[in-house]
Design a protein around this nucleic acid. Structure first.
Lengths: 225, 225
DNA sequence: TCAAAAGTGTTTCACGTACACCCATGC
DNA sequence: GCATGGGTGTACGTGAAACACTTTTGA
């Protein structure tokens, strides 16, 4: 058995669509490039894969650098292979999307970027490379996933209220959902637990605080748009 | 703007899960390897990506070589990156699955394999590399996809009967489906057209022949397991 | 005319949807 | 006590599931 002959392979990178939710808005993390190509343009964070490194490790490395964050929920999205997608040469991108709570992270541009910032997904600037395409697919996937699997909790604080979860769903799905039917579906799914505590401070009734049920049972749910 | 420095990149290959359906059985196409590693073991067909080649082109090349077939339905599945997945060195695999009609193709082993054959998905041999994992994910994806999107037709002849389509669904989903409710859901979806012809030969009532409606309208469907 | 399988229709029931009411809190 | 928003209950209708009957064909 002979090892691979060292013929040339395409460059291999991961690109990350990092979603954050705060102030009732869904946002994406973007970098402003310091160097060509696409100098001074906004792009998704990413990094080249190092030998012996797994996609997930590369993602974690980027998230740690840009966000100072560990233990982030992420999922592989799709692999992009258009030969013209990077003007520097052939480059394959394996895209992941991640869900974080912006309140818990401190973004920092690092040496490779002029700036790093959260953008509301409804007011995106033009993106370099094929990153608009990647972002569009990620948003589509997130919307689909959230309707049948409990990923929404990743975007909220550990304790959250039902109205907060409801607002999150309406924001991400960009639609209105009957709050009473929504409540029932979520409760019936057994994915969340009522802590008995209440969110204080509001000048009207104090809503119950829930937490995510990590040992998720069989019950699923289905939020219809 | 400088081009990529030529540091070493992992090898990049595509692996294909080719599904076929005939004689009321779902099958997968496997190759028997002529060389190490995994000599004389069964594996999924695949090929290394050539520079300037897209995943889809590599897949087509494999399908053309192994099956003498063009115009095959295929879809990207997932990318696999375990550093230990190939004993010859670091190799990334982008997996695709394809749906073909075995009646229309002539499989040939080619120079790289001892043999090539269809295996019933319920009686798979042990597979080399991480190909069992890839196969499992592909079957899961196919099962999920077929419940809401018209991919089943890719596995049948151009003209097919309702009982044939029904049998296909029961086989792939490995469950029984009420034939009358199934018929209604498919008809209501507008994905198929009654040609007016009938399948001759059977010694009982001759079923209507349908064809796939390529200009698919908005109506979807949902086959529940 | 009989068996086997395909085409068509109907009843039933569960779930999703729409909607109304009561409760808690701060001013 | 009043405005605001959160928690709970219920009637209704649509659509999926369960099921029966008729039709067509070859032997």
């Amino acid at each position: 058995m002979k090892p691979f002959h060292s013929y040339q392979n395409p460059s291999l990178a991961v690109d990350l669509v990092v979603f954050g939710y705060s102030h009732e808005q869904l946002s994406v993390l973007l970098l402003n490039r310091k160097e060509a190509p696409f100098q001074d343009q906004w792009v998704l964070p990413g990094a080249f894969l190092q030998m012996e490194e797994r996609f997930r490790d590369t993602c974690s490395r980027v998230l740690k650098t840009k966000l100072g964050m560990d233990d982030v929920y992420m999922e592989q999205l799709y692999s992009f292979d258009d030969p013209g997608r990077d003007p520097r040469g052939r480059a394959i991108a394996v895209a992941y999307y991640a869900l974080v709570n912006p309140a818990r992270v401190a973004v920092s541009a690092g040496s490779m970027a002029n700036d790093v910032a959260w953008f509301n997904v409804r007011e995106l600037p033009g993106l370099g490379f094929d990153h608009k395409e990647i972002f569009d697919l990620a948003l589509q996937r997130l919307r689909s996933k959230i309707t049948y699997f409990p990923v929404g909790f990743e975007l909220l604080d550990e304790l959250f209220t039902m109205p907060e979860l409801h607002e999150l769903y309406e924001c991400i799905l960009d639609t209105s959902i009957d709050r009473r039917n929504f409540r029932r579906k979520i409760i019936d799914s057994d994915y969340i637990i009522n802590t008995g505590k209440k969110r204080e401070g509001a000048q009207n009734r104090h809503p119950d605080l829930y937490k995510f049920n990590k040992k998720l049972k069989k019950n699923g749910f289905q939020i219809n748009v």
